[in-house]
């Protein structure tokens, strides 16, 4: 590498619109789709296991095991399944599987955090259990569910960089091409943007989470 500067800004300018931005876009889409699918699976499961407590331990154990599988290994195993080719599909399957643990856990913790008296009061007002779920428990659980979405999304952004190795696209493409070509600029741009994206998403969703907490919203309303 020798005299090679760490970042060749000329390369960045020249490849900004047809390599870097599309990779960033692919990355966001890949992670976004995965977390949304994971949410659609996790919230019903989370609600179900607050009703059937006995299922809680096996569900958490199973999703916990899925969570520990190293991503490259997960991708490699998925690809050997019939009908799963390299590309976005195995990447999305793995990213969804990784998100289940934290999303289900936070749904359960969120619903459990609703005070008993609140539910009793709602029942006393004549609300049915499905009304209590939709109008009382889920809204109150929302900040904790959003905290789960935040953790799941940040880790998906990191793991998705590895998915580029199985042709799922995204910012990892820049990192792997940079490694292959021994070109630090490309590695740094890919790694830097992935880091920046996860920090921004982390702060952004943290802000949403705080805004959703009823007491802080009330405080904000009073201030306004």
């Amino acid at each position: 590498m020798g005299d090679e500067p760490l970042i060749r800004w000329r390369w960045v300018r020249r490849n900004w619109s047809d390599e870097i931005l599309p990779a960033l876009g692919d990355h966001i889409v890949l992670c976004g789709i995965s977390v949304l699918i994971a949410l659609a699976i996790s919230i019903p499961i989370g609600i179900a296991i607050t009703r059937y407590r006995r299922a809680q331990t096996p569900v958490m154990f199973l999703t916990g095991l899925l969570y520990t599988i190293p991503s490259l290994s997960f991708f490699a195993i998925l690809i050997t399944f019939p009908g799963v080719k390299i590309g976005r599909t195995p990447a999305i399957i793995a990213l969804v599987a990784y998100s289940l643990l934290v999303l289900i856990r936070n749904t359960v913790v969120g619903i459990d955090s609703v005070p008993r008296e609140t539910i009793e009061a709602a029942r006393g007002m004549g609300l049915t259990s499905s009304q209590i779920l939709r109008q009382v428990e889920l809204p109150l659980a929302l900040p904790i569910i959003v905290a789960g979405i935040r953790i799941a999304t940040v880790s998906a952004i990191g793991i998705a960089t590895i998915a580029a190795y199985i042709n799922a696209g995204g910012l990892g493409t820049l990192i792997f091409r940079g490694i292959d070509r021994d070109f630090p600029t490309q590695i740094l741009i890919g790694a830097g943007l992935a880091t920046l994206l996860s920090v921004l998403v982390d702060f952004g969703l943290l802000a949403v989470e705080r805004w959703l907490r009823p007491w802080s919203r009330r405080a904000a309303a009073r201030a306004a």
């Binding site: 940040v154 952004i157 990191g158 793991i159 960089t161 590895i162 990892g172 990192i175 940079g178 490694i179 630090p184 590695i187 740094l188 890919g190 790694a191 830097g192 992935a194 880091t195 996860s198 920090v199 982390d202």
Partner: peptide, 12 residues
Amino acid sequence: AVPSLAILALAL
């Protein structure tokens, strides 16, 4: 928040 692949690739 730094992806693990990023940390490894940045060492290179």
